[in-house]
Design a binder for these strands. Structure first.
Lengths: 239, 239
DNA sequence: AATTTCAGTGAACAGTTGTTGACTTTCATT
DNA sequence: AATGAAAGTCAACAACTGTTCACTGAAATT
């Protein structure tokens, strides 16, 4: 709870100094709009960075964000009405990159059976290269403000729906109703997300735990597909 | 971000007034030790209450806690060294009540097949009557400080282990290694916790969604058991 | 009955927070 | 070249934060 540098000193060393501000975005070239988008991204990135490791989104302050974006607090309001709006923008960003990755993976023509493995692989790839985005999602899926929480859930739901339509292309999916496919997809997404989150904040010097986690998750997926194989949807009881 | 009552007025109306302080614990009868434990609980309860709905644990301030516990900030340090220690105490409390419930459920002699249903029922019962405790666990499982996060995970792991030993008593569990039982138990716990969390912060005026969620979760469990039925553990590849 | 122990008090501290209004400066339009 | 828009600055505000210290008063010990 102690800062070593006073506000004044920090601000004095800001212009092209960048000693403490990690994401300085002011200055530079480009059209007015480009420059604006740049500091907007600086704010988003700063917020994401600040929650790495120990903190939750709701514990990150507006001033902290502007500080490490290299901008004065008041400037924040030129981009967002408050932290909640920034949070929603982060949800958007995170899923935009995720969906892009998955769409590319899907684009490669599929031998059906390898499709799941490929999907899981690209998902893990996403989680690895965009780990900040993923960890943000993982945290805000349960914690924090309800509006952000629901935004995340809506996106996750959409994501599982896409997986469900992929599953429908499977040969042995004939006996399974679309509703049940959705339920199976939810189970898969759940497991993979959980495992990924656990994996990401594991101590990197304990590779044994990581291997064990990976094996367990693979087994879980296999068990789910065995279950799906034996599944028989009741003829939809609809009124 | 605006308080309607000034600090002075609030504090003036505190003694036996209890207009804003919901968990006033000072005064009353009992031995010294009893009185101490009472305000300790008041602090814990206040913290739990403050995070209901919108907030995460890390966004609740020490002063807020003492304020709604009806105690002066400095008194906090007679019980905890800081908010983190209080958080760990909350983890402990939450799982203590959960484990007590489950142990009782297990005590009733089991017709084996009904045991799972009974377990899920008591778990849901716990989540319903101790919803504050459960929601705390659900939030801090991913968000917030790592020491609390790991404390929660350790307890969840222990919990799934207990479920795994229960599963071992099942007739058709013969072909399954203990390691694989653990992995199946993890899958079950995961699904039930997820569903419960989703259920608890659903709008209470939308019973259709609740019913649909319940059905889906039941299906998921059934599918998992179908999978378990078809599961065949490889003869343990141990060195 | 005298003394120690200690949960809770009250006040002060330095620092941080969100939000505001009037300002400068720079780009894009007229 | 004059004019407008607007991204970012500066300074100030009231409120809140965690932590400290010497203190009080009542229960527990002697």
């Amino acid at each position: 709870m102690m800062r070593t540098m006073t506000l004044r000193k920090l601000r004095a060393s800001r212009r092209r100094g960048s000693s403490a501000a990690s994401e300085d975005a002011t200055g530079g070239t480009g059209s007015r709009d480009e420059r604006k988008q740049r500091t907007r991204r600086a704010l988003l990135d700063a917020a994401l960075e600040l929650m790495q490791g120990e903190r939750s989104f709701s514990s990150v302050s507006l001033r902290e964000v502007t500080r490490s974006a290299g901008v004065v607090p008041a400037a924040f309001y030129r981009h967002f009405s408050g932290m909640e709006e920034l949070g929603l923008a982060l949800v958007d960003d995170s899923f935009k990159t995720l969906r892009r990755s998955m769409r590319e993976a899907r684009a490669a023509a599929l031998p059906a059976t390898h499709l799941i493995r490929r999907s899981v692989e690209t998902f893990l790839g996403y989680a690895h290269t965009h780990r900040h985005h993923f960890q943000f999602i993982a945290k805000e899926r349960f914690g924090g403000s309800s509006v952000i929480r629901f935004a995340v859930r809506k996106e996750v739901h959409l994501f599982t729906s896409e997986l469900a339509t992929d599953l429908a292309r499977f040969p042995l999916a004939g006996k399974i109703s679309t509703e049940d496919l959705q339920m199976i997809a939810a189970l898969v997404v759940q497991s993979v997300m959980m495992a990924t989150e656990a994996f990401l904040d594991m101590a990197p010097n304990e590779p044994d735990d990581a291997a064990q986690l990976y094996q367990q998750t693979e087994k879980q997926l296999r068990l789910i597909f065995i279950g799906a194989q034996g599944w028989r949807s009741k003829p939809a009881t609809r009124a």
